[in-house]
Amino acid sequence: MSTPEIFDRSARRQRRDRAASGFAAHDFLRAAMLDGIEERLASVRRSFTDVLDLGCFDGSFQPPAGARAARLDAGHAFARMAGGVQGDEDRLPFADASFDLVVSAGVLDQVNDVPGALSLIRRVLRPDGLFLGAMLGAGSLTALRAGFRVAEAERPAARLHPQIEVRSAGDLLMRAGFALPVADVETLRVRYGGLGRLIEDLRGMAGTNLLVERQPLSRMALARAANAFAEAADPDGRTSERFEIIFLTGWAPSPDQPQPARRGSATASLAAALKRDQTGG
């Protein structure tokens, strides 16, 4: 039995194609994600030869020196801009063990089959290959959500994507078979003079509603949402919006990696250690 799809793949391609030409004016969120990924990559003391930029947007990610980069994007225009191929993250066209580094910034929260995408990422990695990812997580766009709740209090509709908790993200890495999985979160706050500017940014980064079950938003509801957004503003007239960025790190399993100690392999008991501590021994 196939898993029901919550995101409209065709609409996603179209919106990414529309966003491509003006993306540079709205790329602050992905830039923050890439900064975090590059910071984590800088702490890794090894070289990489074959890199996959998964969800490449305009190809702004710079691979490590000397590495070859393949790029994939769900939108034709972004893939063409970056010199990559068009495809979906949960339907990768690459052979197993093709890369020693996979980077993905800003797309996994829009993928229908996130567990499947992570499993495919692990499969295209060589043993001891590294995955570094970033995506929007739970707690994002709180001001926008609150505005829609006020605007459509009597007949609420799904306007924003489901969001993944950081703990669930770590569990997904483990389920996909990654070794040494780590998921952590960083908060980015952006202040807007009005709801229209926020929506303009979301459109410009191809981040608007892609749910299969989309419903039209009336002008009256949009006006009520804009008023609610404005009422949440600080004294200077700007409303703070929140973006929770979940960073993912995982390694393709390899016999050379550190392994957790076997159960029962400890040489001293916890009870003995506590007793020594209490007696000052």
Rank of each mutant, 00 (worst) to 15 (best):
173 L>T: 11
267 T>D: 08
224 R>Q: 09
161 H>V: 06
240 S>V: 10
78 F>E: 07
19 A>D: 01
8 D>G: 12
265 S>W: 12
202 L>H: 06
277 D>M: 15
162 P>A: 13
182 V>H: 15
85 V>Y: 04
140 S>M: 05
132 L>F: 04
107 V>H: 07
90 D>R: 01
188 L>T: 13
56 C>Y: 00
37 I>A: 07
108 L>I: 12
212 V>C: 14
174 M>Q: 15
281 G>Q: 14
238 R>G: 05
49 T>K: 10
154 E>S: 13
39 E>N: 13
82 A>Q: 05
78 F>I: 02
11 A>V: 05
272 A>W: 10
184 D>M: 09
252 A>P: 02
123 R>F: 00
211 L>F: 05
249 T>R: 15
234 D>Y: 04
123 R>Q: 12
144 L>I: 07
275 K>I: 10
85 V>F: 07
33 M>A: 09
217 L>T: 05
266 A>R: 08
231 E>H: 14
159 R>S: 09
205 M>A: 05
92 L>T: 03
99 F>S: 11
106 G>Q: 08
178 F>H: 02
61 F>Y: 11
268 A>G: 11
251 W>L: 15
60 S>L: 07
111 V>N: 00
206 A>M: 02
56 C>Q: 00
212 V>W: 08
13 R>N: 11
70 A>V: 14
165 E>H: 11
26 H>I: 03
161 H>D: 04
79 A>L: 01
9 R>E: 03
